[in-house]
Design a protein around this nucleic acid. Sequence first.
DNA 1: TTTTTGGTTCTGTACCAAGAGAACCAAATT
DNA 2: AATTTGGTTCTCTTGGTACAGAACCAAAAA
Lengths: 158, 158
Amino acid sequence: MEDSKIHLSEEQKTLVERLGMTYERSGMTQVASRILGLLLVSEDPDLTFDQLQATLGVSKSAISNSLNFLINTNKIEEISRLGERKRYFRSKVLQWKEEIKKSSSQMTQFTDLLKTVLKQRPGNTLEFNQNLAELIDFMEFMREEMPMLFKKWESRKK
Amino acid sequence: MEDSKIHLSEEQKTLVERLGMTYERSGMTQVASRILGLLLVSEDPDLTFDQLQATLGVSKSAISNSLNFLINTNKIEEISRLGERKRYFRSKVLQWKEEIKKSSSQMTQFTDLLKTVLKQRPGNTLEFNQNLAELIDFMEFMREEMPMLFKKWESRKK
DNA sequence: TTTTTGGTTCTGTACCAAGAGAACCAAATT
DNA sequence: AATTTGGTTCTCTTGGTACAGAACCAAAAA
């Protein structure tokens, strides 16, 4: 495993770190976050295990665990190249359309829970109940509207 | 501090716990999550420090820390009642409209970061760059559309 | 002034998760 | 058959955090 560290300009390093911070805020580990950042910033969008390790300067286990996590949570994908044994990893951030569709079913679940809450509430807390009903209604509205919004966006594209 | 435990039906207890699980999944602590759940389920939407403590059956410090956390992250608000010293706490989940507006500015920030990434990318990764540009475009589109969506929703309401 | 109320802060413990480092292993290469 | 490559898995350390319990404290009440 020779030194396959990728060269990054100062600006690129900063970007990897800033993207990393953004992902960390959503609860990801530092290493996983930086992998995602690096996969967006690096010139080649497909990087190998050892390129990631050498560039980020962390242990193999950290990379291995993070890659598995990112694959399980559908943030990256594995690419194999013909005639090559080693695998390449690519960010799936750019396949965001599917993600959005999945989040719709999560939303439905939460909405259902809120409906149950509303149903068992006493009738005397009028304003509260109305606000809750509004929230539920809005979430359902959004779920219905999303497909149309998508169409609108697509047709608007140059 | 007499026993100010709130009585909850079995269904209500289950709901507090299920709401709690939902919040925990988003990274909140157990106590903070259950406070949020309880504030949605309890008959009175405004609860005091000791009602929370007695009902959830945890230590004062746990309540104190969680309440501070929830206030800092804007999930609950403090209410004072005239002539009363003790404070009441209320969930802000139902003030979701403001939250949505704030999330729009967060989105702008992330979009800006992605724009910076795109700008410094080499020109030879065409598909990648196009996908990234699309993502940026869609996020900006969403931000623009939100106000209109809101209007549409409001006018549709019975 | 003393006591009570409504909390906050400090200290200690227990747990958990991230990451390092090394051992390990299967497939490919020599 | 021996070695190298491309990782995975195991163990250990470290750091952080949630929570309990108790001490503490300021404002209000008595």
